[in-house]
Design a protein around this nucleic acid. Sequence first.
DNA 1: TTCTAAGCGAGACGGTACGTCGAGTCTTCAC
DNA 2: GTGAAGACTCGACGTACCGTCTCGCTTAGAA
Lengths: 212, 212, 212, 212
Amino acid sequence: MQSRTPPLRAGRPRSAAADTAILAATRAALVELGWSKLTLGDVATRAGVAKTTLYRRWAGKNELVVDAVAELFDELRLPDLGSLAADIEGVVLQFAAILARPEAKSGLMAVVAESTRDDALRERIRGSIVERQKRLVLEGRTRAQERGELPPETDPAEAARTADLIFDIVAGAVVHRTLVSAEPADEEWVRSFTGVLLLGLGSASQVPPAAP
Amino acid sequence: MQSRTPPLRAGRPRSAAADTAILAATRAALVELGWSKLTLGDVATRAGVAKTTLYRRWAGKNELVVDAVAELFDELRLPDLGSLAADIEGVVLQFAAILARPEAKSGLMAVVAESTRDDALRERIRGSIVERQKRLVLEGRTRAQERGELPPETDPAEAARTADLIFDIVAGAVVHRTLVSAEPADEEWVRSFTGVLLLGLGSASQVPPAAP
Amino acid sequence: MQSRTPPLRAGRPRSAAADTAILAATRAALVELGWSKLTLGDVATRAGVAKTTLYRRWAGKNELVVDAVAELFDELRLPDLGSLAADIEGVVLQFAAILARPEAKSGLMAVVAESTRDDALRERIRGSIVERQKRLVLEGRTRAQERGELPPETDPAEAARTADLIFDIVAGAVVHRTLVSAEPADEEWVRSFTGVLLLGLGSASQVPPAAP
Amino acid sequence: MQSRTPPLRAGRPRSAAADTAILAATRAALVELGWSKLTLGDVATRAGVAKTTLYRRWAGKNELVVDAVAELFDELRLPDLGSLAADIEGVVLQFAAILARPEAKSGLMAVVAESTRDDALRERIRGSIVERQKRLVLEGRTRAQERGELPPETDPAEAARTADLIFDIVAGAVVHRTLVSAEPADEEWVRSFTGVLLLGLGSASQVPPAAP
DNA sequence: TTCTAAGCGAGACGGTACGTCGAGTCTTCAC
DNA sequence: GTGAAGACTCGACGTACCGTCTCGCTTAGAA
């Protein structure tokens, strides 16, 4: 639990509004310019903030973009649509919709690319984005178990491994479809994909074939 | 095979060795520095070549790295291990091995990130890397059909859609596992993943559980 | 004379110690860093004072340094060595000694340079340094007249002009010798210089040749 | 004597026009902005040159300004006006005229101030400005000796010391008059000063009193 | 004594310039 | 006409100080 009275350090406190403005400006710049042409000077200008203020709070472009993009994924909600298949389809569609936004596309892949050489950055991504959204897999499983669509797990370690696998498959497939294949992850695709996934996981709850 | 009598333009012909040296130097620089710290001046120096020479042949950093990375994936071969499951496991392991190399990791993701805002670049990636390796999916399916593990397809359009879906799932999952989750795509993981995939595709050929 | 009852404004009075500490810190910083690398933040830190305090009392670096350097010249005293020549030599040597100190050297010239574009600053320099020390020329002349070494002046305007000329020659020569020629204004040089000066001024009182 | 065939190094040669443009731009910026507000970025822009080009040729603001100001003093010529006194008056007036120009004023004093903490800079000033103009003193003396106004010197070391002393007195007085006292070194002042100087040097050639 | 206005430290703020670096182009000479 | 060399323009980098501001906390005379 946090201290109810924050450190109360001396000096002028940091402007809370600045953080919000900077992250919003970062996303706006990502949309207009993309990752590689985004400059911190420009972000600062858009946010109506001095470059120093920006550097005081983030170590660099990578860290800033991780935080700016992470907020996008916080909108994800696991819908309750009555069946595991429908719930998964719903959340995958949401995920695809976010990934279709230009600020997510170019920002996310770029920081992942950078993270291959920067362990601290990778941890930041994991903490701020990946682990934070893994909740959706866990919620989905719990709910399916309550409905009787999935058996209760017996081995917790195995259960964790499976959750990770599912996350890699879902996130990986949607990202690859969207960014590399450059095709929309639309309803039809999501239904096909979810079908394969659920069948592969041995769920009794099959997805009905799409009506033609 | 190239024309035996090349265009025979006037003046000194281009050094063939230069291309090889430049691509090798690019990969070496990717290993040491990663995408973002790789500079074309440095690549030129490593290759023992002037910057002018480099720019005469590639339009910029993106194009150069696509070509340098594309060569890595040409090593992929579909092994003939007797069953569809084993063949898939084999090729996924090869893919994972390539992705584990630092020059592939940071180079590939970075150009994918750039391609979100550069259609020409995305087409270059698709042509040089993605479509070129999609052959593996097709070969695998054909072989499985010959073995009777999969039924012959009836609808060619549907077959193409399925091939794309498989490719997105496989490539996406391995990439996500390797780069985002930052866990090794080792034999155990590949066996779990392949099991889900094949079961999901409705193949009769199940993967036996891993020996303990 | 100062008002015995200062303005007596409400609120906490300014710390008298701060002024002293700030000026001393300024001189120390001049010694260590020189004019151009001296920063007001650093001066404040050295003085154990907040930047705000410093800016409340001085408008900027120029004004602060003028005051810090001006104090150095207040040590100058016209010695009574029995003859005009000896008196002048004495005071010129004192002046040279002050100018040899690093805090005077780099501080003084820098503010003079700045004053070429800032009339208020030039007046501050004149008031705090130049006019304040011109007293030495006047004292010297009066004493020499009392001794009969110089005739009493007849035309006051002419006398003022001559005093100014002498001041320009003396201060200018010592400064140029010290800073530009970068040679010490030592006893030998001072004796030569004083000789030329007195002869030039038509004084009967010649400087005896230096004893070997 | 320089090599008639310069090193002929590989690569594109440096633009000769750039040097000229940069020095002229520096003087223009000194006039408009003064030393302390002059920025190298601004000089580069005025000269129509990139900042990097400027830094490739000069180490910093100090070095650049020394060179820009040094050129101003190359205009100085010892006039032949028939007598030592007139010649000196002539050259001192020229010197005063140059010093009255704003690019000389603020530039010169500032670099002198900086040179108090930078030996390389001081040597650059001495070499480019001081020693280069000391020629005027030597020429003047030679010419006066030819006219019989001054005796031929017997001791060369003593002659050199005297030349230095004269230079310190002349340059120092004019600089102090112009910059510190901030009074014009006009004809009247120059005549008074030259009178003192020549009388002090024991020259038979007196300056006639100024006509009223 | 309490009130209150100013001084004080700390440090965040919007700016401006720094000096460096890399991109991509151009100009020279040698092959 | 290709190639190595290196100077060129351009634009962003991340840092350092500037001079201002906003905090919470003294401090001391006035009420």
